[in-house]
């Protein structure tokens, strides 16, 4: 990056002068983006920490609360329920989505026309808003007029939104339905970047497709897997819209993940202080997970791995 501004033809003094000019001139170009980011993303990040020590009902004056919010939230079993659910949905979603996306990515990376056509259709769920997806699934799962009758599959006629385990399973399925297409696309791109010569060499050696997959495709996709997993894992902290519309956190609190818990405490119960505590926890989890996943990529690749995000 830095070598790009080197001016070979210039004398040393001119070089310094020019880079100096260029640096200051170019630095200005970042100012608008920086202002927006600092004011509406970074400052709120600090703000949420401050508010976690404050009393606020969302309308009236803001007062100091000391450690009250933290002690009340940390001693609330609801927090641990939400934390457990968030991690459960995160891990199961990862376990479900990664193999499917990877295999579909390998599959759609093939050059046949029909695979390209399938890839076009795979992308469709990504166009729907989470609200639309959730609303559509409520209709789809109607025991009398939905898919259960349409497909003649009686086991689909369950009280999906009324039984905790079923609601949780449904949430995980719908999340996969909506987000697998995106990760398929990432893997498709990753597979296409694997040098063809590797496969040719393997074929000459007589390796079958299964061996090729495990000895070439999978190792070559290491960084793609880390990128996709990071997006998946950090993204899972924000599955708010879908769960809010689909289950509202219910039945009971069985799908009340952290992001939803934050919203309901803050904007339904008007307890902005405790809600901010939850938000801080969310931010910390996100950062820790992202850093952890970057480490998996190895220290030497860390810089470029972040670029791949």
């Amino acid at each position: 990056m830095s070598s790009t501004t080197t001016h070979r033809a210039a004398t040393a003094s001119r070089k310094i002068e020019q880079t100096g000019q260029q640096k200051s001139a170019l630095a200005w170009l970042t100012v608008p983006a920086l202002i927006f980011f600092v004011v509406f993303a970074l400052a709120p990040l600090v703000g949420v920490l401050v508010l976690s020590f404050a009393n606020w009902d969302g309308i009236g004056a803001i007062g100091a609360a000391g450690l009250e919010n933290w002690s009340s939230v940390l001693s609330d079993p609801g927090l641990y329920n939400a934390l457990g659910l968030t991690f459960l949905i995160m891990i199961v979603s990862w376990l479900v989505q990664t193999p499917i996306s990877l295999l579909l990515g390998v599959f759609t990376a093939g050059t046949q026309r029909y695979r390209a056509a399938l890839a076009v259709l795979y992308f469709l769920p990504l166009l729907l808003s989470s609200a639309a997806v959730a609303i559509a699934y409520k209709a789809l799962l109607d025991p009398n007029f939905g898919l259960a009758v349409g497909l003649g599959l009686p086991f689909l006629a369950q009280d999906w939104l009324g039984v905790p385990q079923l609601a949780l399973g449904l949430v995980i399925f719908v999340i996969a339905w909506q987000f697998v297409p995106f990760h398929t696309l990432i893997y498709q791109g990753g597979v296409r970047q694997i040098p063809k010569s590797l496969y040719e060499a393997a074929q000459i050696d007589g390796a079958g497709i299964i061996k090729q997959f495990f000895h070439i495709t999978l190792p070559q996709l290491k960084y793609t897997i880390i990128t996709s997993s990071t997006l998946m894992v950090v993204g899972s902290l924000t599955y708010f819209d879908l769960i809010f519309v689909l289950t509202g956190g219910g039945p009971g609190n069985s799908t009340r993940i952290l992001a939803l818990d934050m919203y309901l405490r803050g904007f339904r119960a008007n307890l902005m202080g405790p809600a901010s505590v939850i938000a801080v926890i969310l931010v910390v989890i996100g950062l820790v997970l992202a850093l952890f996943l970057q480490r998996l990529g190895g220290k030497d690749k860390q810089g470029s791995q972040l670029e791949g995000l």
Binding site: A43, P44, L237, L282, V283, L289, L309
Partner: peptide, 16 residues
């Protein structure tokens, strides 16, 4: 900024 779940900042944004 990529690693931060920005939804978590919704309360201060609401205040602002």
């Amino acid at each position: 900024g990529l690693a931060i779940p920005l939804q978590a900042t919704i309360i201060p944004i609401y205040l602002m």
